[in-house]
């Protein structure tokens, strides 16, 4: 009885499992291809027909001196990407926390209109804003180069980290995400803190942030992923190979057909940190998106 019941349950689940396996295969196929291609020697790409879907374990793409990824400034690219992504993430956390607090808890004239304006920025794609953003950065850069009282700082917007991160330090999305979460925090908690003599900053630090960890982690991961995967903007504001981010660096490699195998290896190198990040913070991602739907 028991075993046949188990078998029946499996049989009933079989169609949905089959569907899930197919979907997973479709999603994972490009990843698989990239991994396999990163382990092919260059000859595999130059021959007639498509490269084999079976790895030929050519580790030299990664490690051989003079020809592997280790020989390109991949370390420098990764470092640039990391600096950019960390600064953007930190910036978004700070600006989104502060603005979300204001929109969620402070009463001021025009609050709702202003919030709608914030939301509206989410509807503007990066590509639309990219020209004016670039002009702004270019102007800033020229100021820092020309004006004596600025130039001593040696800050550069073109070919510099400030230019890479500046347009992404504050987003409507982050404000929106955190505000929605903050609104689920019972008002009475803040009232109680206020009666106890806690001001805005202390309320934020001692009550809201500890309760909003999940939402903050969600925002941090989204911001980091987005920053890491930037392509168009870093391409625009960096010319110096030393300031390239990892995405640009790989793309540059890929243009050279004689380096295509190394480009695939580079892609895996760029992909690994993200994979680790997502695995490490997966529980926050899910909790942040669904948090608040169930009372704790």
């Amino acid at each position: 009885m028991r075993s046949s019941g188990l078998a029946q349950r499996w049989l009933r689940r079989l169609p949905s499992y089959a569907l899930l396996i197919v979907c997973a295969a479709i999603l994972l196929f490009p990843v698989y291809v990239t991994v396999v291609f990163s382990l092919h020697p260059l000859a595999e790409f130059l021959q007639e027909g498509a490269p084999s879907l079976w790895p030929s374990w050519e580790w030299n793409n990664y490690f051989a001196s003079g020809e592997g990824v280790s020989d390109t400034p991949i370390g420098r690219f990764l470092f640039n990407s990391l600096v950019m992504a960390v600064v953007i993430t930190a910036g978004q956390l700070i600006t989104a926390t502060l603005s979300a607090y204001a929109f969620a808890f402070l009463r001021f004239p025009g609050r709702n209109v202003l919030f709608v304006v914030f939301l509206a920025t989410m509807m503007v794609p990066l590509e639309v804003a990219i020209i004016p953003n670039f002009q702004t950065i270019q102007w800033l850069d020229s100021q820092f180069v020309q004006r004596a009282w600025l130039s001593w700082t040696n800050i550069r917007f073109i070919d510099g980290y400030p230019g890479l991160v500046a347009p992404f330090l504050a987003t409507g999305f982050g404000t929106f995400l955190l505000r929605q979460y903050f609104l689920t925090i019972p008002r009475e908690l803040l009232d109680a803190a206020e009666m106890d003599g806690y001001g805005h900053i202390r309320k934020l630090m001692h009550v809201i942030l500890p309760l909003g960890k999940g939402a903050l982690a969600t925002l941090a991961i989204f911001a980091f992923l987005q920053a890491w995967n930037q392509y168009l903007w870093p391409l625009l504001v960096t010319n110096d190979p030393d300031m390239r981010t990892v995405q640009i660096g790989i793309a540059a490699e890929a243009k050279d057909i004689s380096r295509i195998n190394v480009a695939f290896a580079g892609t895996i190198m760029a992909f690994l940190p993200m994979l680790l990040l997502v695995v490490a913070f997966q529980r926050y991602l899910v909790r942040g998106l669904f948090g608040g739907s169930v009372k704790g």
Partner: peptide
Amino acid sequence: KDRDLAMVFQSYALY
């Protein structure tokens, strides 16, 4: 905070 009052809330408002 300067009124020297304490409040007990309906939902308890514990952290």
